[in-house]
């Protein structure tokens, strides 16, 4: 019998294993439609839709001072927090695309190492919906990230 703890968990963003992940969670909820008629006393339902969301906390660090790296919190942050693009006096925006090569969504795999080659995992196309960075005395700088799956997960092996 095997149990899994935090050390068995990892997270891959666009195929790259993200280092220094402190935690991740995933939640899937199903919304319901009532089909109870006037002649009935107890609720009956059919499933309406499903929403899969999740969150993770990634420590911010630099392997080499001055080099941001591509497998840490910086990767997440740069998908959402972007400098404005040069586009004339009246354009002050920046692209909302989060995926590689200008695509809209990123690929996120939440993984549990069970000793096999692929491990256990849920992989989905996601849009990062929130990033919160907190700098505080006595604490390591980290990014709290929430995301929502675009459609059903691509791969589920759990």
């Amino acid at each position: 019998m095997s149990y899994y703890t935090g050390r068995h968990g990892s997270l891959l963003l666009d195929g790259n294993t993200i280092a220094q992940v402190q935690n991740w969670s995933v939640s899937s909820s199903v919304s319901l439609l009532s089909i109870k008629t006037l002649a009935e006393t107890d609720d009956r339902f059919i499933a309406d839709g499903r929403t899969t969301t999740g969150s993770c906390r990634v420590l911010y660090y630099q392997e080499t001072p001055g080099v941001k790296g591509s497998n840490n919190a910086s990767t997440f942050i740069n998908k959402v927090i972007k400098a404005r693009e040069v586009g004339g006096d009246f354009y002050q925006g920046a692209t909302l695309a989060q995926g590689p090569n200008g695509t809209n969504r990123s690929s996120l795999r939440l993984k549990i190492d069970d000793g096999t080659d692929d491990g256990l995992y849920i992989e989905m196309r996601v849009i990062i919906t929130n990033i919160t960075m907190t700098m505080a005395v006595g604490e390591v700088l980290a990014a709290d990230i929430t995301f929502q799956s675009h459609g059903a997960p691509q791969f589920v092996n759990i």
Binding site: S34, I35, K36, T37, L38, A39, E40
Partner: peptide, 8 residues
Amino acid sequence: DLVPTART
């Protein structure tokens, strides 16, 4: 021949 869910 269906039972409605609301009726006025």
